[in-house]
């Protein structure tokens, strides 16, 4: 057992458990807190994968900005807590869980059988180089400059759209 494997097991179990807990709790604030925990575990996994820039952005953007937005809306709306998860519409919910379990089994089957990436030999040095902000920035400002500009425009449009939607009162 080396340190990377131990870290992976710890972070992966935190991520998996917190996602399940987030879906099953009935209080929305607790759901949001467990989602933040999940994001932090994912940031740790990104670090384990040598993706330093993405790990930092994950903490700043997701765990910082987006979750603060969610918590603010939860605070503003003062929503009633749902009743217990399986109190009503039991058949539909059971069927929904069945569907997602079926999707998981299919994807797991595809991962373990019949895919060419098992022969992949990871190159530690190349992966460290790929995760640096230098490599990502070089791609962003050369090959992906138009998508980058479009992303900026999308954020501007989203800001204006959010303002207009939240301000106006629909009749």
């Amino acid at each position: 057992m080396n340190i990377q494997l131990i870290l992976f097991i710890v972070l992966a179990s935190v991520a998996a458990t917190s996602s399940v807990v987030m879906v099953t709790r009935k209080n929305p604030v607790i759901c949001a807190v467990f989602l933040v925990l999940n994001f932090f575990a994912l940031a740790g996994l990104y670090l384990l994968l040598n993706a330093q820039f993405i790990a930092v952005v994950q903490v700043i953007v997701y765990a910082g900005a987006i979750m603060v937005l969610f918590l603010f809306v939860l605070m503003l709306l003062n929503t009633e807590t749902e009743h217990k998860l399986f109190a009503d519409k039991r058949a539909i919910k059971f069927f929904a869980i069945l569907i997602s379990a079926f999707v998981f089994v299919q994807v797991a089957y595809l991962i373990f059988h019949g895919s060419p990436f098992r022969a992949l030999t990871p190159d530690e040095a190349a992966s460290v180089k790929a995760g640096t902000i230098q490599a990502i920035g070089q791609q962003l400002y050369t090959n992906y400059i138009i998508p980058f500009e479009v992303a900026g425009f999308l954020l501007l449009a989203a800001t204006i759209g959010a303002l207009v939607l939240a301000k106006k009162k629909f009749e």
Binding site: A12, A15, A16, S19, V20, M22, V23, N38, L45, L85, K93, A96, I97, I99, S100, A101, V103, F104, V107, A108, I111
Partner: peptide, 16 residues
């Protein structure tokens, strides 16, 4: 597998 599991938990959450 971890990624697939989280995705399916998300799908189940959206549905239920």
């Amino acid at each position: 597998i971890l990624s697939a599991f989280m995705f399916c938990v998300g799908v189940a959450g959206v549905l239920i």
